[in-house]
């Protein structure tokens, strides 16, 4: 079993952190193989950012593939750029607060979550990526949610005050993801 995920959005939306948190959790989950590859450009701020995560029970030969099982998009340019890379019956996760364009493909599952708005409700726009991570983990169950929670506390725990906020954000996303999976 191998899952190819691409996460894309504006620089500053925490796209890389989302991918890394998930990868760390996969690394901590027993003997799963995992690769994380950030696409890098010359710009430090702004522009688009994206990263490739592959989680597999076997050795990973292609860390940067052409065809994705799952796609997370945080903005319209990312949707347009990468929607074609999603395989038929693949899962598309959309930040519906920002992405306004119509999703034309009907051969995929679409999970919409207004993570920007939700983050504002939590009082910190920075946690939108953690909410989206929750949505993804809740929907796919690709790694144990408890392991992800530990990773979040460890990786984002430099400021101890923010741990409860991030935990809340993660659970908010998890609930949405689980709900959509049932539906």
């Amino acid at each position: 079993m191998e899952t190819n995920l691409l996460v894309a959005g504006f620089g500053g939306q925490g796209v890389m952190v989302l991918g890394k948190l998930l990868s760390h959790a996969a690394c901590d989950s027993g003997q799963k193989n995992v690769t994380f590859f950030p696409s890098y450009g010359a710009e430090q701020r702004g522009g688009t950012a994206n990263c490739y995560v592959v989680i597999s029970d076997d050795a990973i030969g292609v860390p940067v593939g052409d065809t994705m099982d799952d796609l997370i998009v945080m903005n319209d340019p990312s949707l347009n750029k990468f929607i074609g890379a999603l395989k038929p019956s693949g899962n598309l996760f959309v930040n519906s607060s920002i992405v306004k364009e119509e999703i034309k493909r009907s051969d995929i599952s679409v999970v919409k979550a207004p993570v920007t708005e939700l983050s504002l409700k939590l009082g910190n726009p920075k946690v939108l990526n953690v909410i989206m991570l929750g949505v993804y983990v809740g929907y796919t169950n690709i790694v144990d949610e408890a392991v992800v929670e530990e990773v979040i506390a460890r990786q984002l725990g430099k400021n101890a005050d923010l741990i409860p906020l991030n935990r809340e954000a993660f659970h908010m996303g998890l609930d949405i993801g689980k709900e959509r999976r049932k539906a």
Partner: peptide, 9 residues
């Protein structure tokens, strides 16, 4: 640059 930039266990 792939191996240099790639993260893996």
């Amino acid at each position: 640059g792939v191996i240099g930039t790639l993260m893996e266990p």
